[in-house]
Design a protein around this nucleic acid. Structure first.
Lengths: 364, 364
DNA sequence: GTTGGCACTCTCTTCTATCGAGTGCTAATA
DNA sequence: TATTAGCACTCGATAGAAGAGAGTGCCAAC
């Protein structure tokens, strides 16, 4: 009983394809025409009835066509759908946008989410996972007696700065002293290694009676906290309204508010395997209550310095999984290539698309 | 005919207040109760009929209550509504949020728009006007033979940096030379004063045969462009869906897409007078087609260094003008105080609320 | 100038009838 | 045994009709 005939598979695939296209329950007649397996609607009906029994399809009501269940989608995603290759134009388009957006704004996840949303025409969110960041370099630039600039280069090669203005005067020597001291003792350590003790000893060593050390240390802590905290960005929530399943404003509002909330989304973020994997979460497979009748496609990329970036696209369960997965996969690969440390596959190549779902495999 | 009796004003105000509250056409009976001017519904009906004639109100259909026209709202905003003072809790709340959000992320307009949206519960957008920015200081930090960090401090006291990696090696002296040269000849000038000629001469003066000068100059241009280009940020689009007038998903979608588009919004931005002014644009008063049946409340603040920031809140014409104007005004004042250059009114004070509309004054 | 009374209008809701897509079942067929 | 044609049946969707209710406009009285 756990097997499923070839013909049933074809029919199931046809139903899902058609339903994704039209958002209307699919009838036996339509299938007989679209999937040309030489048999009549009546035969299809028998098969459909069995597919309903097996749990792959359901009927909104007795005399309507069939609609895929989450289990049906799961089967579709795992085995049935044709893994779309992007067209040359599409890959070129993505690469062009990537080059354009990333050349200056290195890691800005806002850009990643916006891009993902534009490409797929669904709301998208981007996030970075937790990671341990340390300071690689510490510089202090003397501007004038009351002003200096802190410049910190992090282990992930991003650079942060802060302009500090003082009510009192400091001389250039003090700045130089502090600079080299901080460069010596505050580099290579993580945020929680910056203890009051360490700050104190730096203060004494620099002969700093004005508390500058704590100001600078505070900046260090701030920067480290900020960079190692996962951050999230959501774009294109409004595209939800283009989907017929969100014509109900309340439903749309609920999901959009949830998305705008941002970060605490995707509890599955942590459990994410490796790069080059696209994961599809269908309806009830989602942990978050608000996503129980939506689907999420997630791709992961290497954001450099052991940081993993995640791109997620949210849509109705009737989502164009194939297209979205292909695009996200390509996008993630492009990002890995540009941001990641490791050796990279040559530009413009399709990388293989590995799709993993949850533990259930859609059979029974 | 251009005058309007006191009682009519009271009735008009009552209609608008009630309509803002309930989103339902307002009947004569309701007014007789809410605005207690000792007269019967019948009298009110007569007055209402005249108000309709004058163009301040309209009826959706013969036997419905009255709804304000844009002209009615205009009159309401200009003369009728009580200028709300915020409660102590509200001002404290805003100040607390301001302190929290701005202490580190100086100018991030994302924060401004998010804050405005949270406070008003309408979608909000923040933008900065065009301004001329120059470089105040130029520093180059040597990291290693293939890497250096550019640090630029701008006339608006923001600091930008960029990590540059080279395929070739440079020695520390070269860096030092470039640093002082750029600091000398690239400061105090605007973007379009950075000519190929200037770059060339710098290149020669530094004895730079590797084209480093153009890399650095490119960064200078980039930073100047970016900082002087008006930028925009939109937040809380989804709050639109909470409003009954946007229960139609298509209508909501249209406006949300327009808002997400961002910048080209508010063509009236340029014409904006001074700080401490709140401007209300009602329905057709808006230039943008997409806003013709929505209202916008705009406040302006001093973002320092001759830059003006704008905060706009978008909602249905049936918007709580009074509350929104009060909140925006206070928020703008708080931002001016923190970011602006001039002397500041003491914290926590209500600043006077000046509301200006367009040229028409709602009378005929 | 104000008020009560009353017929009138128009939307909104509810109910009913009809239509049609699509099914499930049965009996005939290859 | 698998497939097919035929047909009665189900059920949502649509349209029209009836009734309720809110609110008006107007008139005559105060």
């Amino acid at each position: 009983m756990s097997t499923i005939s070839e013909r049933k598979k074809k029919i199931l695939a046809a139903v899902v394809d058609e339903y994704i296209r039209t958002a209307e329950p699919v009838g036996s007649k339509a299938i007989a025409q679209s999937a040309h397996l030489g048999c009549s609607p009546a035969t299809i009906r028998n098969e459909l009835a069995e597919l309903v029994n097996m749990g792959y399809l359901e009927q909104p009501h007795t005399s309507a066509g069939r609609v895929p269940t989450p289990m049906g989608y799961r089967m579709y995603v795992n085995e049935l759908m044709d893994r779309q290759k992007l067209s040359l134009e599409e890959t070129e388009d993505i690469n062009r946008r990537l080059n354009q957006k990333l050349q200056e704004l290195d890691d800005t996840i806002d850009n990643v989410s916006r891009l993902a949303s534009q490409l797929t025409d669904y709301p998208a969110l981007a996030l970075t996972t937790q990671s341990t960041v340390t300071i690689k370099r510490f510089d202090i630039i003397y501007v004038d007696a009351n002003t200096f600039i802190l410049v910190v280069m992090l282990s992930n090669n991003s650079v942060r700065n802060k302009l500090v203005r003082l009510p009192i005067s400091v001389d250039q020597n003090m700045i130089r002293r502090l600079s080299s001291l901080f460069n010596a003792s505050f580099t290579g350590i993580t945020e929680d290694q910056i203890t009051p003790l360490l700050i104190n000893s730096t203060e004494r060593a620099a002969d700093d009676s004005m508390g500058l050390s704590s100001v600078i240390a505070a900046f260090a802590i701030e920067v480290l906290t900020e960079s190692s905290t996962p951050s999230a960005s959501v774009s294109g929530e409004n595209r939800l309204l283009g989907q017929p399943e969100f014509r109900d404003p309340d439903k749309a509002h609920r999901l959009m508010s949830y998305l705008s909330g941002g970060g605490h989304i995707l509890p599955e973020a942590d459990s994410f395997g490796g790069t080059d994997e696209v994961r599809v979460l269908i309806g009830p497979e989602n942990v978050a209550e608000e996503l129980k009748d939506s689907s999420v496609v997630i791709a992961s990329y290497d954001a450099g310095d052991n940081t993993r970036g995640l791109i997620g696209v949210v849509g109705p369960t009737r989502m164009d999984y194939s297209a979205v997965a292909a695009k996200l996969s390509f996008l993630a690969a492009g990002l890995s290539r540009r941001l990641g440390g490791g050796e990279a596959p040559p530009e413009g190549m399709h990388n293989k698309l590995i799709i993993k779902g949850d533990s259930s495999d859609g059979s029974r």
